[in-house]
Design a protein around this nucleic acid. Structure first.
Lengths: 340, 340
DNA sequence: GTGAAAGCGCTAACAT
DNA sequence: ATGTTAGCGCTTTCAC
């Protein structure tokens, strides 16, 4: 009985077994160059029999292409996804699926991944809800990679070649008009950190909307990891304070749930005394004690389009800068159905 | 004016600039071999100035190590995470953070990633809630990689060197005893597909518990993508059918929310007429119209321990097969607080 | 149509 | 302490 250390078969093993050169094997497997059909089939059959598949690193070293895309949700330490939000999950699912379809391996990079891993071996990156100062963004760009964001980057100077987003200002106006139509007289905004475009765009549009109508603006931007606890605390403060809003438009679903709970704990009736709207939709919002009005913003499509744009740019089939806008719809539910 | 195509600096550029050989650069950068402190500092300084970082592929080709770990949530097509569940997100966050800490790049592999990408360049994989027939599992193992699972693999024959899980049978008993103590006389189980250990373990323990007490078992295993809609439909069927359970222990948070809604739509009071318990906890459960009793099963720790185990095995510091059990606690909330 | 050979950028014996 | 050199496994140009 003799032991043979099993080694991954290399291109040489296949070539040897087939009685051809490694060049022919390479050609046969990749469909490049000219190879006689008979030879080709034999090589393929032998490769399959041996369980051969090319060493990815050797292949990438030789070609200089990574066939990989980095995905990064900005901002929450070592968490690949910092907020328990269907929005991010679906966006990542859409991006991941599309990347695979186009022949790129999606790699999820945690925000804290600086340069520890040398340069991430990716041809490009999609950064979700960027602040604009993500190290990955610059590191990819410096190495000739392309960067696309989901959500507008706030700094113009960034090496971002394109982005995809909803028309958040328009959505904000739609929400505010809806709240007004429902009889709310002082809708406010409770959103995330100001250095993200979703907050910035919403606040800007809201402020203008309020100013035009002589409504005293109520804007709260919450920094840090978005949790329901944070929202509960802030909402209580807001609602029990002076001159409280009678409706709140908020960004995360956990915020919306937190506001709902705060209202509940303060004995404030939703939607009678307080209207609530969320910028994202999820099962949790639909199943809340009072089903919450929300924006269906098609995160899956955002992710998918971001990859499509990115790959187009990488392959030189598209030119940057490019902006893709994904439609969004207001889903009116009990939390703002004051009339009828 | 002359254009110079900017190329990534290679180890040769650094060596040339420093007036040393590439070996010295390699040694200096990796802290291996002997290099004079002065030389070392100079090399480091020049590398930094040139913006040099090693080409990952060349490095991995030369060393034969990938310094990467594949993460896969089993079972939902091209979705990297099929269910909008805090459990998976937190598990992945824990795994990802720990992998990074230990110097491995976490790669999230969608379930449909078969062999399209050749072999995934990973030293090992963590498969979450495996059925046991995941192609990735076998592909990694065949190439000398190590596989660890979160959740017990159902087939003994699998090339799995270890797993980490909660003690689900014990949890089931605890839940059932709690329900009984609250006066529920016919608790049932509504769980996911039977080919996952969490379902199998729960059902087995439950059946025994019920049999011992002469309680007619009520077990429903839902196949396919777990959604609230699915749970609503099934729960309505169950609750309006003959001999309905008066308490339901379920696996996903979306299931729990769905059951709650089904009860609501049927005019069944929770917890008075129906008790509900979920195997996982999340913000959505805490914020539901009736806060839901749930199991805190520490998904983040499960992910973290899975990676620790995996890396230990990869590095040969630990021996398989190994099993790690993570404690879990019952969080009693309104949905089962019938007394008091 | 097929093969020889030169790299891709790096590591690690081994020699100096 | 530092340099020479032989791979790692693959692609690709250029002969044949």
């Amino acid at each position: 009985m003799s032991y043979v250390a099993r080694r991954r078969p290399s291109i040489h093993d296949v070539a040897h077994e087939a009685g051809v050169s490694i060049t022919t094997v390479s050609h046969a497997l990749n469909g490049r160059g000219r190879v006689q059909p008979g030879t080709r089939d034999r090589v393929l059959e032998i490769a399959a029999r041996l369980g051969y598949s090319a060493n990815v690193h050797a292949q990438r070293l030789a070609t200089g292409s990574n066939q990989a895309i980095a995905l990064q949700v900005s901002g929450y330490g070592k968490n690949i996804v910092g907020v328990d939000s269907a929005y991010y999950i679906e966006l990542l699912n859409g991006a991941s699926a599309k990347a695979l379809d186009l022949g790129y391996m999606p790699m999820l990079a945690p925000p804290e991944l600086h340069r520890e891993f040398g340069e991430l071996p990716a041809d490009g990156a999609v950064i979700i809800d960027p602040t604009g100062s993500e190290p990955l963004l610059h590191s990819i760009a410096e190495n000739g990679g392309v960067v696309v964001t989901a959500g507008r980057p706030l700094k113009d100077s960034d090496p971002v070649t394109g982005w995809v987003d909803n028309d958040l200002p328009a959505v904000t106006i739609e929400v505010m008009d809806h709240l007004k139509a429902q009889g709310y007289v002082r809708p406010g905004v409770l959103t995330g950190p100001k250095n993200r475009s979703y907050s910035a765009d919403t606040i800007t549009a809201y402020n203008q909307w309020a100013a035009e109508r002589g409504i005293k603006a109520s804007v709260t931007a919450l920094r840090g990891n978005p949790t329901a606890e944070l929202a509960i605390r802030k909402a209580k403060e807001l609602l029990s304070g002076e001159d409280p809003p009678d409706a709140i438009y908020t960004s995360f679903d956990v915020f919306a749930l937190g506001i709902l709970r705060a209202a509940d704990e303060l004995g404030i009736k939703v939607p009678e005394e307080l209207g609530i709207v969320a910028t994202v939709d999820s099962e949790a919002l639909r199943s809340a004690s009072v089903p919450l009005t929300a924006i269906e913003n098609h995160p899956r499509q955002i992710g998918s389009e971001a990859i499509e744009l990115l790959v187009g740019l990488i392959r030189g089939e598209r030119e940057g800068p490019a902006v893709v806008t994904i439609p969004a719809e207001l889903k009116v539910r009990a939390s703002t159905m004051r009339n009828g």
